[in-house]
Computed example of a mutant assay.
Amino acid sequence: MKIKDVKTFVVGNPPPGFGGRYFVFIKLITDNGIEGLGEVYNLPFHPDVVAQMVKDVVERYVVGKEPFDIEKIWRSVYGGGFIHRPDTTMMGILSAIEMACWDIVGKDLNKPVYKLLGGQVHEALRSYTYIYPKPGDKTDVYADPVLAAERAQEYIAMGFTAVKFDPAGPYTVYDGRQLSLTELDRSERFCKLLREAVGSKADLLFGTHGQMTAAGAIRLAKRLEKYDPLWLEEPIPPDNQKEMGKVARGTSIPVAAGERLTTKWEFLRVLEEGAAAILQMNLGRVGGILEGKKIASMAEAYHVQIAPHLYCGPVVGAANVQLATCSPNFLIQESILDWKGFHSEILTKGIEWQDGYIIPPTAPGLGVELNEAVALANPYVGNALHLDMTHTPARV
């Protein structure tokens, strides 16, 4: 069996747009008709450019190869073009190719991918969601702690046992910085009201996006410690793990990080510096499922847990489920609410979610299939990127 072709799908994510403005899916096609599904996460280019990049890489390194030879394909792409380093653009493309190969392998063997990577450890996967706005909201749930606390109670009633929120203010290309007193006060008030609302029924996950310096993050953490968050997420930019280690040692709140990192080599520095207690690899960027498994295994040796990141489409979500199911040190999985809405419509069968937990699929491969009719009916027509940052300095 050889890979002979690739299809790409640039899909606009209709309102409310949770998970990003668009998704980039790929299908690898073999000479015996098996198709493998993958997803690229958040490259800093227009998605039509990303689709062309995918085609070029597949034609250059993957066509004619056996999908079972994942390590060989991985190394060819990783080192191709004399790169041979954790380049986020190439690794996003490689991640999609790699998970598509695993989808083919699982289908050919009639096994879920997790059965091929050590077998099933978890019967159900604890999940969390961001606190999202709803139609009819009179204020901004991202900035109003009273409304956020009410929304958190709604999510607990659905079955969630953890909720995430990010009240620390804008993230900019000039970060890290010291948060303003207003941002510090708002962040503390969010934690206070949310803890009062949920009590011990749910963990609080304090999300940030690298806004702070290490000193600024410790300053914030001192205010939040009394509300016992499960984690403080990516408190400083992702480019200096030694500084992140200062934050980890300066607070009792576990540090979580990794959505902007890629490959085992970048995560090794996190572990060596003691920079995080929870690793948040995104399988659409980190290098795919096997690379995620290697990182999870390294983390296991450090007694560090994993919480796969997801702010994209459901194919990365499905890959995350495969990794989480076979990883002993899995902690919790990010969900886009309960996987309803467009994250379900874009698949012929959605990811199964019950009372706060994801149920691992028994279908072969990734366990999901793209609804091509829905994908083609929702092309992305904008010019904005999947995610972006503010390009002017934050005013303190």
Rank of each mutant, 00 (worst) to 15 (best):
A384E: 15
L310P: 01
P379Y: 12
G382C: 10
G350T: 10
G317N: 06
W339V: 07
L337S: 11
G356W: 00
Y357P: 00
K340Y: 04
L366I: 05
F342I: 14
H391V: 11
L376I: 00
G313K: 03
G367K: 02
G350K: 09
P379A: 10
D388F: 13
P393R: 15
P360R: 03
A373V: 14
E345Q: 15
L331S: 02
L376F: 00
P393E: 15
G365R: 03
V381Q: 12
E372H: 05
P308G: 02
C312S: 15
I358G: 01
L347Y: 03
N371G: 06
P308Q: 03
Y311P: 08
S335C: 15
Y311A: 12
I346M: 12
D355K: 05
I332N: 00
L331Y: 03
Q333H: 15
L337K: 13
E372R: 09
G356D: 04
E345D: 15
P328K: 07
A394D: 12
G356A: 07
T362H: 13
G367E: 04
N383R: 10
A363Y: 08
Y380L: 03
H343F: 10
L376T: 00
T348C: 09
H386E: 08
E372P: 06
A363P: 01
A384W: 08
K340R: 13
T348D: 10
T390V: 15
P328A: 13
G317K: 02
A363F: 04
L337A: 12
P314Y: 05
L366S: 01
M389S: 07
V321M: 01
K349N: 12
M389Q: 07
Q333D: 15
N383F: 00
I346F: 09
T325Q: 02
S335F: 08
A373Q: 14
G313M: 05
N329D: 10
D338H: 06
C312F: 12
G317L: 04
L323N: 07
N320D: 13
E334C: 07
W353I: 04
E372S: 09
Q333C: 15
M389V: 13
V321S: 00
I351N: 07
H309W: 08
A363C: 04
V316R: 03
C326M: 10
I358V: 11
P328W: 09
F330C: 06
L310I: 02
A377K: 10
D388M: 07
A377Y: 06
A363I: 05
A363G: 02
I359K: 01
Y380W: 01
D355T: 00
R395M: 14
E372I: 07
G313I: 03
N320Y: 02
S335H: 15
L323I: 12
Y357D: 06
E369V: 08
L376C: 00
E334V: 08
G341Q: 02
Y357V: 12
Q322G: 13
A319M: 00
D355F: 00
G365Q: 09
G317R: 01
P314K: 03
V368Q: 07
L366C: 03
N371R: 08
A375Y: 10
P379M: 12
T348A: 08
N329K: 10
P360K: 02
A318D: 04
T325A: 03
E372L: 06
W353L: 00
A319T: 00
K340H: 06
Q322S: 13
